[in-house]
Computed example of a mutant assay.
Amino acid sequence: MKIVIPDDYQDCVRHLDAFARLRGHDVSVYHDTVADEDALVERFRDAEALVLIRERTPIGDSLLARLPRLKAISQTGGGAAHVDLAACKRHGVTVMAGTGSPHAAAELTWGLVLAAMRHIPEEFANLKAGRWQRTLGTGLKGRTLGVFGYGKIGRLVARYGQAFEMNVLVWGREGTRARAAEAGLDVAASQAELFERSDVLSLHLRLNADTQGIVSAADLARMKPGALLVNTSRAPLIEPGALVAALREGRPGRAAVDVFEQEPVTDHPLLALPNVLATPHLGYVEQDSYERYFGDAFDNLLAFDAGRPVNNLAE
């Protein structure tokens, strides 16, 4: 089978243990992202199968119409929001997704919290430049951690907050609030209260039509001047332009982000702000996660090639 794997930024896929499962197949791996459809067609022209890394390359009807040899798409992780499933069905392309793990994203979230609250990147830069103790950090004990969305990742982050003796405050859909209350956590009376009370507020929502832009400029304006907003979920959860404007106004005082509207990013208004800590969408980019994500994706593809039943999202 002719397999193409795009968007392997770190050139790591070939070095995973899971990659050995594709032995005997013709595999091409690309290490950059291209947006131009003609360029994608050139790369995918002979592909019978694509293995996609999360949401890095969108697959739509126009592209599929130019790839008559394509039979299958195997997606790493559990989501395929960037794939037009209806178009895949029309073109007879099977779409498979695997499973995900919340741990890597939750751990990165907590790393960003600690790094931002204690100014770790700034102080490392100061130390390298010969400057000693130039900032005053903020501790977490006794402060309020707001968790917007109490799913798998949100639950882990809430537990981390408890381990640091923070007061955890949760908001989300009705089911979210019920689960948080059952776990003995404080549930905000409203979304507004979540933003008003939180010293650290972390977003853990799936992006869909209901959650796009769910964090408004008015929400951000309610935050404390010393508060930190953390977003390791999806950038469009926040109203376009609202976070940059809010940070310039000083409410919240800081932000730590791992996600952007268009990725990869080389230039963005957030990167120019002194009160922002940013990482290049590293939430799931971790050795164990990659072994699991790619292992599932390769296993699904091999099952498809062998004619065994698979879970076709495009049915």
Score class of each variant (00 low, 15 high):
Ala235Gln: 09
Ala125Val: 12
Val257Gly: 02
Gln262Thr: 14
Ala106Arg: 08
Glu37Lys: 14
Ile238Asn: 06
Arg179Glu: 15
Gly60Pro: 07
Thr135Tyr: 10
Phe294Lys: 05
Ser62Gln: 12
Leu114Tyr: 11
Arg159Pro: 06
Lys224His: 05
Thr57Glu: 02
Leu270Ile: 08
Phe44Gln: 12
Ser289Val: 00
Tyr9Met: 13
Ala115Arg: 01
Gly98Gln: 02
Asn167Arg: 15
Asp36Asn: 12
Gly111Ala: 10
Glu122Lys: 12
Gly142Gln: 02
Arg206Ser: 14
Ile3His: 02
Val257Ala: 08
Gly161Ile: 00
Val147Cys: 02
Val51Glu: 00
Asp210Glu: 15
Val200Asp: 06
Leu108Asn: 01
Gly154Met: 08
Pro225Arg: 08
Gly24Met: 08
Phe44Lys: 12
Leu112Gln: 07
Ala104Ile: 07
Ala297Glu: 01
Pro102Asp: 00
Arg222Val: 07
Arg206Glu: 10
Arg292Gln: 15
Met1Cys: 13
Ala314Asp: 03
Arg23His: 12
Leu282Val: 11
Ile53Asn: 12
Ile214Gly: 07
Glu263Val: 13
Ala80Thr: 05
Arg118Thr: 12
Pro58Met: 12
Asp267Pro: 11
Ala49Met: 10
Gln191Leu: 11
Tyr160Asp: 04
Gly226Lys: 02
Val215Asp: 09
Leu194Val: 11
Pro58Arg: 05
Pro225Asp: 10
Asp186Thr: 15
Ile214Pro: 09
Val265Leu: 01
Asp84Ala: 09
Ile238Pro: 04
Pro264Glu: 03
Glu291Asp: 06
Asp17Cys: 05
Leu108Gly: 03
Arg292His: 11
Asp84His: 08
Arg143Pro: 14
Arg118Ala: 07
Arg222Phe: 08
His31Arg: 13
Arg179Met: 14
Asp7Gln: 10
